[in-house]
């Protein structure tokens, strides 16, 4: 079947390409044809100037992530006919949140720099602790904890779809944080606490807005959000709590334990502290006028709050026991 495509073109070195524009192409699509095969056939038979990255053609190399009808996918693992049937169009654009160099090719340097920032390698202990054998036994469960994060092919799909990166360019982003978890969550890692301290600084783990796009658009099931959630848990366990993110979480944990639900006023105060909460007063007054200001402790406790507290205590006890067990 014949499929019309619109491809975003851009070439800063030519007079006509300096401003991005959309160019129309048309191809004869066969059953099972991928978007990448369509691009390759256009480059071979219609327009050799069309630029895009590709290598393995089997979703391993991570080169060919592009926006297909508005959402980031690997061109090599997206079949063109079903995609066209669903969207009724075929618009191809470079991934978002990256600077475009030419056509569908973006600058990956910032991506690699952010990855470098999380030090993507294991940090062994400086000196071998006494009594420790050279081998570290890794159980199936240990491996499972970081398994999903190891599947990353560094295609940039998650960063392209990340809603936080869209607004805050300095944010480390889901790809680098998933990589950070791959090492922090590794039982052989010894630099975890230091690492978590750095990751809790500005533009680290607490910049994530939990939009879940990284989970939805990762072609390999890495689930960067899950990695970020685990990094956050681990940072709090390590006592790295002097930041708004961790305080916000702790306020919620305490609120649910106390009344069974969220106490917004107490949350604001505990997260921001006295000074910043005072700064919210003009906003608070406006909310009050519309009856929107949450008042602390107006909430009746939920029924059977003792069940909730029993669950808290039991999880705490289990976590304590798990910690006592030696590694491996």
């Amino acid at each position: 079947m014949k499929i019309d495509l619109k491809i975003r073109r851009f070439n800063p070195t030519t007079k006509n390409g300096r401003e991005p524009y959309y160019q129309a192409y048309s191809i004869e699509a066969s059953e099972g044809m991928t978007v990448l095969e369509a691009l390759m056939s256009i480059a071979a038979a219609q327009d050799p100037t069309l630029s895009f990255r590709r290598s393995c053609r089997s979703s391993i190399c991570g080169s060919c992530a592009i926006k297909i009808n508005g959402f980031t996918k690997l061109a090599c693992s997206t079949q063109i006919i079903p995609e066209h049937e669903k969207a009724h169009e075929m618009v191809l654009e470079p991934i978002a949140n990256h600077t475009v160099l030419k056509d569908l090719i973006v600058d990956f340097d910032p991506f690699w720099k952010k990855l470098d920032k999380v030090k993507p390698y294991l940090m062994p202990p400086e000196t071998q602790p006494e009594g420790r054998t050279k081998e570290v036994h890794i159980s199936e469960k240990d491996a499972e904890a970081i398994d999903h994060a190891q599947k990353c092919i560094m295609c940039g799909s998650c960063n392209s779809e990340c809603n936080a990166l869209e607004i805050e360019k300095k944010y480390l982003g889901p790809a680098a944080l998933a990589k950070a978890w791959r090492f922090v969550g590794d039982v052989r890692e010894e630099g975890g606490r230091k690492r978590l301290g750095r990751l809790s600084d500005d533009h680290g783990i607490w910049d994530c807005v939990r939009c879940v796009h990284c989970v939805e658009y990762c072609p390999k099931g890495v689930e960067p959000l899950t990695a970020i959630e685990r990094l956050r848990s681990r940072a709090i366990q390590e006592g790295i709590k002097d930041n708004h993110g961790a305080k916000h979480v702790e306020a919620m944990v305490n609120s649910v334990k106390k009344v069974g639900r969220l106490d917004e006023a107490a949350m604001t105060f505990k997260t921001l502290g006295l000074l910043r909460s005072l700064g919210m007063i003009p906003f608070g007054l406006k909310m009050e006028m519309h009856g929107k200001m949450p008042h602390p402790h107006l909430f009746p406790q939920i029924k059977k709050i003792d069940e909730v507290r029993t669950i808290y205590a039991e999880i705490k006890r289990k976590n304590k026991n798990a910690k006592k067990k030696p590694k491996g």
């Binding site: 959630e229 956050r232 944990v253 609120s255 649910v256 639900r261 939920i302």
Partner: peptide
């Protein structure tokens, strides 16, 4: 009780 709005997930899965 409250579902945790994601914050309980951050704390302890």
């Amino acid at each position: 009780n409250c579902c945790g709005a994601g914050l309980l997930t951050d704390y302890d899965y």
